[in-house]
Design a binder for these strands. Structure first.
Lengths: 214, 214
DNA sequence: ACAATAACGATTTTCGAAAATTATGAATTT
DNA sequence: AAATTCATAATTTTCGAAAATCGTTATTGT
């Protein structure tokens, strides 16, 4: 793996996880020290992230972490519902046995990590991502999967600060995931879409709550 | 405008227009001579284009123009229908007078250029793009507009070689655009969506014809 | 005192060369 | 002849410095 790729992965993770505050400038000198590399690989990573809308660039004024706002979150949420319901529909229609097995496996892995009390939060997020991706994995559309990844990262930036602030409603997220998986494996498109929708809308409520608290 | 931005614009244009054959390697030395700049701005541009899926990169083996295939075109087409019908629906619901005026203006400009016999093909493409963008411009979703731009560029790569090969059907494209605009301005969502869909599906027929001929 | 301007420092952007890696081809061995 | 090894060339990747630009502070003039 080249330095530029490492820089891309590290920076992306740190931005999504909120290590850098939104709109804070990403100075090359700082990044160079933080990640232990020269300017070139950092600039390449920043350019890629710019194309993904995680950072913004202004000519001769460098890069910033892109802003967060309620409006942008709502936009990303709606786009996500559009993309993911379609991808889910296709996935259910086209998925084979191997796909089903993957859904079961990722759900199981996710639940295992949820159960673990002092578990690694990083690992939990990875498995959560993996589960949601597995649901759509058989859709057969590179574009939809690409959009899914983009929107997942974009909304993850909102989900993480909201995790600390306790939501207004009690949720059994494992049960929600289980219900989605069940409907998916039963090839019940209508139910699966509705459950996925509700799942995201519930998360959205928590996030709105967290945003307004800030 | 910085050199990196110029490199991005130029490279993007040249890739979309097919100046570089799909899968052909984009060697830095060649690009450096072609665009008259050093490696740094070129690499930055290539990284942005990689995030947009117009070029692919392999570690330590540089960049290539991304491949074209019928499957990828069909995928992009379907994604486009999903994204654009939704964006059009929203645009019709939210658009104001200024938006309507813009639709009328871009349609007029497009028709003027179509009429001109020895007209600049570049200008025609710009205006075609502007018209289609104006239809969705009022949708209020940055994400959908972003996806539109991506998919437009991706499918444009297929549309251009197909222009030379005569299609299997006679089309009055001006009339198609006019009908879409009319439905949009009448705020007839159902009709507008159907007409846009047909418009793209007709174009797809031409492109499939052009692809199989190759 | 205040506006305009100049000088400085900080920062981004770009270049050219060095380092690292892959591809190519010749020489050697089996 | 085929495969292997080694040397060479081509290419990508990275660094460090130079150039360009921006923002701030000091200076000058009114």
């Amino acid at each position: 793996m080249t330095l530029a790729e490492k820089a891309y992965v590290s920076l992306r993770k740190d931005i999504v996880e909120g290590c850098f505050a939104p709109e804070s400038p990403l100075r090359l000198a700082d990044l160079s020290e933080r990640y232990g590399m020269g300017f070139s690989p950092l600039r390449e990573a920043l350019n890629r992230l710019q194309a993904e809308r995680l950072v913004t660039a202004e000519s001769l004024r460098g890069f910033r972490v892109s802003a967060r706002s309620l409006a942008e979150f709502e936009d990303a949420l709606q786009a996500r519902l559009l993309v993911e319901t379609e991808a889910l529909r296709l996935s259910i229609a086209k998925g084979d046995d191997a796909w089903e097995a993957k859904v079961v496996a990722t759900l199981y892995a996710l639940r295992q990590q949820t159960k673990r009390e002092g578990g690694d939060v990083d690992e939990l997020k990875t498995r959560h991502h993996a589960f949601h991706r597995s649901l759509l994995a058989a859709c057969g559309s590179d574009w939809l999967l690409d959009f899914f990844e983009r929107l997942y990262a974009a909304t993850e930036r909102y989900r993480i600060p909201a995790l600390t602030a306790a939501g207004p409603q009690k949720r059994d997220i494992d049960a929600e995931h289980g219900a989605i998986a069940e409907a998916v494996l039963a090839r019940d498109t209508t139910a699966a879409e509705a459950l996925l929708r509700e799942h995201y809308l519930r998360t959205a409520v928590t996030i709105r709550h967290g945003m307004s608290a800030t």
